[in-house]
Design a protein around this nucleic acid. Sequence first.
DNA 1: CAGTCGATTCACT
DNA 2: GTGAATCGACTGA
Length: 213
Amino acid sequence: MIASPDRTSLPRTFFDRPVLDVAPDLLGRILVRTTPDGPIALRLTEVEAYDGQKDPGSHAYRGRTPRNGVMFGPPGHVYVYFTYGMWHCMNLVCGPEGTASAVLLRAGEIVEGAELARTRRLSARNDKELAKGPARLATALDVDRALDGEDACSDPDAPFSILTGTPVPPDQVRNGPRTGVSGEGAVHPWRFWIADDPTVSPYRAHVPRRRRT
DNA sequence: CAGTCGATTCACT
DNA sequence: GTGAATCGACTGA
């Protein structure tokens, strides 16, 4: 039996906590992305924690820059970055202002607006692949740098809001090393996912790129 | 100011 | 499993 999801919005205080508490607590929550074409709702199944400036894996490790500035701002806002020359990834900022922690949203299950997501994810072979991976997730939800800094805790009709949903029991939460993270940051087991969920992305260790000729 | 490479994905072998 | 795609942020000289 499936409990009906709680449509209450998560308050900002939810994100104003240590990022390692917030990250696993986000599993099972519903991210609502309101686009001009309509809403898309995503049940979060996989996330990664990036713990402020002391975390070598974090974009904030070397201090504030124009790109990562939002991470240093108040919790509950969205940090979007552009990478590999073609993809976007989105995070939710955690902890008090100035601490620069964030949770990368890595994967989820589209629970509403799949028809919209499919038009943006033409290479997906089935609906489970629509948001299986952080760049796929951002693509499916039509997220790019224009949305960097958006407040996800303002109102339900804003570009982003997050609903209480149905939190995942602790015994269903798994954790392990973060995907694609290089160097010292790779040791932290700060990737969290829902056990046996078919929308969780496969783990890949970081692979240094070979030099181009 | 040039070199390097990334919190990745996709096509192809 | 391997390599290309593609560009902007960051680094170090």
